[in-house]
Amino acid sequence: METTAIEWIVIVLAASVKMGTPILFGTLGGVISERAGVINLGMEGLMLIGALTSFVVKLYTGSTILAVSAGAFAAGAATSLHALVCISMRASQIASGLALTMFGTGVSGLLGDSLTGKTITPLMDIKIPLLSSIPVIGKIFFIQDALVYLSYISVATIWYLLFYTRVGLNIRSIGEAPAVCDSIGLSVLKYRYAAVIIGGMIVGVGGAYFSIVLTPFWVDNLTAGRGWIAVALVIFAFWHPGKAMFGAYLFGAALSLQLRLQLIDINISPYFLAMFPFILTIVALTIATIRNNKKRIAVMPASLGEAFFRGEKH
């Protein structure tokens, strides 16, 4: 059973991708929503709703595609409440997001109560022909389950959409200066609704990853706080899908290293390892912020968290 150092690293990194994937979906959802100017603190709740719905659908239909779609739609439906409250009714996005988390945690616990002890078959890994034979990289990224591949596609799609299309430009502009966009005839409301609800659906897929892949059963509070890591990662990733991918895998790596270092007689306190990703992100954030300040770049969408009132004078 002796493994070489490189083999060990490959195993750890492959596990990091798996642990990072639900956080990645959550972060991507947050990026879309916040690029349009709406904060979503409800991710933990949305993930739980997504996780429970996908689990139930997979349990009764056996279909992964149906299960993941159902998880996404359920989370999307819950997010539309958030959208209604903070886009149309202009209530506090912070309060509404927190309420969404509490609602999701509560409702998933209540409805999932009768599912104790039921399990499903977890999703198996698929080897991508050619790509998986690339040394090192292939084993890390291309012997994974279908949802991991979906996350790669999502990152590329959202990246392209946000930065290389007209629609993306509109979303980002609305996040910066909704009044200006409104004056040139863009519907701020429509764009924001779309961004928030689609964002919520992607968060729901992250939730589905918990119950379909990582822990193929339902227990109360299955996500155990990962949604909050995604909330933080949206900021750490500077609202960028590529950096979100890197950040999510960094957290995934910290989670799996915490466990695996204990087995190779490297005596680092588990408490230190548990806080390690947070230290790393704070350092990364500090360096990046200093750099951006020097270049006078503001990365945070300027209207983030503010409700839009048509015709309001500043």
Partner: peptide, 21 residues
């Protein structure tokens, strides 16, 4: 062999710990 997860309840971490072992 023992792996500490430093939690009473964290399903995905418990699963990952089992995989590590």
């Amino acid at each position: 062999k023992v792996i500490w997860v430093n939690a009473w309840f964290d399903p995905s971490k418990e699963g990952a710990a089992a995989d590590s072992l």
